[in-house]
Every structure is written in structure tokens, then in C-alpha cells.
Design a protein around this nucleic acid. Structure first.
Lengths: 249, 249
DNA sequence: GTAATAGTGTCTATTAGACATTATCTT
DNA sequence: AAGATAATGTCTAATAGACACTATTAC
């Protein structure tokens, strides 16, 4: 769309000349993973205007020829950015307005996705933008974040934090086999609080009873008493516990 | 946009000639009220193509000059259709695709709103479309519903039904003053199940303790022992109970 | 009084959270 | 044996649901 402008003003002038009287629509996935015991988000460094050189979500326009529905378009974006063709994702919200994009009235639909870190293959995209995992706690110190993407990430994070108090969503972030302790640590990393081990085990037992966590027969070889290794067998929708974890704030 | 075409084919031919390579975006509010002990949705009968003469949600395009954000645009639509400038509303989802609208790739963001029946003043709009409350249980028997609006209504209804099991949302549907019994009946109408009276009173007491239901000092004059009349003083977000009501299905 | 509904209290089941105890591994 | 963590059990508090009982009105 935009290629070699020297300044943003120059770019916008050329863009306005082309502008139809319509709303610009995009999809922005907030792709979460757990890497090195921290919750991280996939971001790209923009190589073109607007917000050249700022960090942004790896979103963009819908290719109408390639997708029949919005969900198709989201799957395509996830595949393009992570190489994954199956990942948990859900719609968070749609936001927009006159001020979101200097090109004019724009709307974006935000999805969050949960991916297993070691399954992701990052590749620079067609425009050779830098793609990198950013720890959520470091987002404030990023020099510049494009559009309203900070707001969109925060909305996704809030949804995720709230939803894991009554669902098994973090299991989607686990390696192929993992211990209950590792799963608990995923909850702790996302919520940034400690969770009582014994209380958590009761929750995990519900998942085992439901067949969502399957004992592999293998045993972890970490420090202390060895723990059973489980595999996650997700259903089409996340498991919902009957009660929320108490918000210990 | 479209005015006097004899057939849909003729209309579409004229429309395609105008089409930019963009996505058509609209907002569709699902406005719920309780009227005559039934949950009803505000619908309009379309006077123009596409889906001429079918019932549709009272949505449409965003007027970019009038609104700075999507929420502004929703407020404007609610005002235009109901005369209300303050109503509870929340975003449900954004849906769309190639097949939703015969004019081409389209996206809509769905909001549900809860309004007090006696406050609404229905007026035929600029294009003199018929505007009417439709009971949700009668939607299946409506001869024709435009676009994917049946799906959008069902999504809103599902959200509403789920959310009232742990929030005070139905209080937004009540008359100015009402009894606990009336509030309970609103829940029953929406969920289409009976709710144990005494269990419900405990929930209501939480709302009274929080100051969300205020005793007016007045007394209802219905049959049986007179009941206290309350007023709803909503906060900016709905009250969330610590536990859901059990799904008694 | 009877009918009808409001309002309150009692009992049980579920579950989270806190915490103690026992079990199983490595060094 | 010491250290570490897993796995299990016990106790308490909160709350929903079921249901009994009392209170207040109209007739």
C-alpha cells in the first residue's frame, strides 16, 4: 500500500488523494505465549507509514479473496505470523473511531490467541518487518506503540486474566507434556500472583476427571518428588469451572 | 443509498457499479425490552433492497461526521430508534463475511441494549420503515429476517441469558419503581424458567446492601401481602454476584 | 377466618482456601 | 538423613437451593 515516502506528511497526502468515503477495517491478533516464565505478546516493528518504526500488533486488512468469514481471516493471519494452523483464539472486542489511524475513520476487531512457545516459527514477513516476542510487563517501556494497540493489548490481557479465574485456558500455553505445577505456574505468570498449591490441585483434578488432562504415564525429573506428566486434550470450548478463583487483591 | 428499484437484481447491478474495493461496515443494536411479560426485540421492516420487506435489526452505517468513536455511533442509533439518550448497552460480537450481504464482503458489530419499555417512543424513521417490538419466541415465525440478523439476535440472547445468571442486568428493564417479585419475573421471562423465590431474595438483598436497590418507602398494592417498592440506582458497570445461579436444565 | 404473597430462618450440599500430614524422589 | 516437592485429607467460611415458618394485606 505505502512504500517509499520520506515523511509521514508526504505519505498521508498521497493516501488522502486515494481515500474512498469508507471505513478502514482491520483485524489485530494479540498472540500470547509463555516464554522464560513470562507472558509475552507477538509484535512487529513497522517499516512503513503510518507509525513507521513503532511496534504494532501483527494485524492488517482482510484479504477478501482469501477469506469467506472473519474467522477465516484470523486463522490466515495466525498462520502467516506463527506458522500455526491450529491455535486457541477468541474475539475480544471491536474498537475504532476517527482518531485511531491518521488515515481516517478506522475500525479494528481484536482477537487474542494462545500459542505454545516452542511451536512458533517466527519469520520476517513480506515487508521484512522485525517480528519479536515482547514481555507484557515491558510494553510500557517500548519507545513507541502504533495506533491504539496498547489499549487493545490491555483489553486482551484483562479478558485473559479474568477468564482464567474460571477456565482452563492456560493449558493451551503448555508444552506437549507438563506437570500440574507447570500449569499452575502459567496461571501465576498470567495473574502475577501466587496460587495456593493444594487449592490448584483440586481444580486440576476436575480437568483430569473430565479427561481434559490425560496422564501420560511419564514422570518429570525435576527437583523434589517426581510429578506425573499430563497431556492436554482440549475440547472445542474451554472448560469452565463452577466457581471462580477468588480475586486475592 | 438505494431508492426505487423494481427488483433486487436491478438494485444490485446499480450497486456493484459503485462498489469500491472495501468492506461494508455496519452497527446492529439488538434492543431488548420486557413488554407484557415477554422479552421483545426492536425490529424494522425494510423498505429498500436488499432484503426488501424483511424484518431487520435497526442498524446501519456509521455517520463518520457525527461520531468520533464506535460507541458514539451506537448511542446515536439508540437515540434515533428509541428516543433514549441513556440506556445500558454492551458489545456482543463482530461478525461478517462474504455471504452476509448480497452487496459484498460485509462486517457488523452487534450490541445489545436493555431499555425500559414505557420510556421508548417508537417513530417511523426517515425512510418510513415500520418499527415494532417482536417477541423473541415469535422470531422463528416471522416470514423473513434480513441478513444474518437471526444469528445476531441469538448471539445477543445467549449472552444476555448467560450474563444474568451472575449479574443484575435485568434491573435495567424495570419500571422506575418495582418490587423484588417484578425483578425476579424479569429474570424468569428472560431465562424462561422458574426461580425459587427465597433464593432470589437473597440475591436481591446483596443489591440492597450495595445500595443498588433503594427502598422508596412506597408499597405495592397488588394481591397478597404488600411488597416494598425499590428504585434501581445503577453503577457504571453491572453488579457481578460472586456465584452464578445454577443452570437448572 | 381464608387466600395470597412478603419476608425470614434453618438445613444441606458444594467448593474455595488454609493448613497439616504423608509419600516419593535426589543428594 | 536432609531437602524438596507431590499427593491427600481435614477444617472453616461462603453461598445456592430447598423448604418451613411467620407476617401482612384484601376479601
Amino acid at each position: 500500500m505505502s512504500e517509499h515516502y520520506k515523511t509521514e506528511a508526504e505519505f498521508l497526502k498521497a493516501f488522502q488523494a486515494n481515500t474512498h468515503d469508507t471505513i478502514l477495517y482491520s483485524i489485530d491478533p494479540v498472540i500470547f505465549t509463555i516464554k522464560e516464565q513470562s507472558l509475552q505478546v507477538l509484535m512487529v516493528k513497522r517499516k512503513s507509514y503510518p507509525f513507521k518504526d513503532a511496534w504494532a500488533l501483527p494485524g492488517g486488512r482482510i484479504d477478501k479473496g482469501e477469506s469467506k468469514t472473519i474467522e477465516d481471516a484470523v486463522r490466515l493471519k495466525l498462520l502467516a505470523k506463527t506458522g500455526l494452523d491450529h491455535a486457541y483464539f477468541e474475539q475480544v472486542m471491536t474498537d475504532g473511531g476517527k482518531e485511531m489511524d491518521p488515515r481516517g475513520w478506522s475500525i479494528t476487531t481484536v482477537y487474542f490467541a494462545l500459542v505454545r512457545y516452542e511451536d512458533v516459527v517466527l519469520e520476517e514477513n513480506q515487508t521484512r518487518e522485525l517480528v519479536a516476542w515482547q514481555p507484557v510487563e515491558a510494553l510500557n517501556s517500548l519507545s513507541s506503540i502504533a495506533f491504539w494497540h496498547h489499549k487493545l493489548i490491555n483489553a486482551s490481557l484483562e479478558r485473559l486474566r479474568n477468564k482464567i479465574t474460571y477456565t482452563d485456558l492456560p493449558a493451551n500455553l503448555m508444552p506437549k507434556v507438563f506437570t500440574i505445577r507447570q500449569l499452575r505456574m502459567a496461571y501465576e505468570v498470567i495473574l502475577d500472583t501466587e496460587i495456593t498449591r493444594q487449592a490448584f490441585v483440586k481444580r486440576a483434578n476436575h480437568l483430569i476427571d473430565k479427561g481434559l488432562l490425560v496422564d501420560t504415564g511419564e514422570i518429570s525429573d525435576e527437583v523434589g518428588r517426581p510429578a506425573k506428566l499430563y497431556e492436554y486434550v482440549p475440547e472445542s470450548t474451554p472448560h469452565v469451572f463452577s466457581h471462580s478463583m477468588n480475586k486475592t487483591k
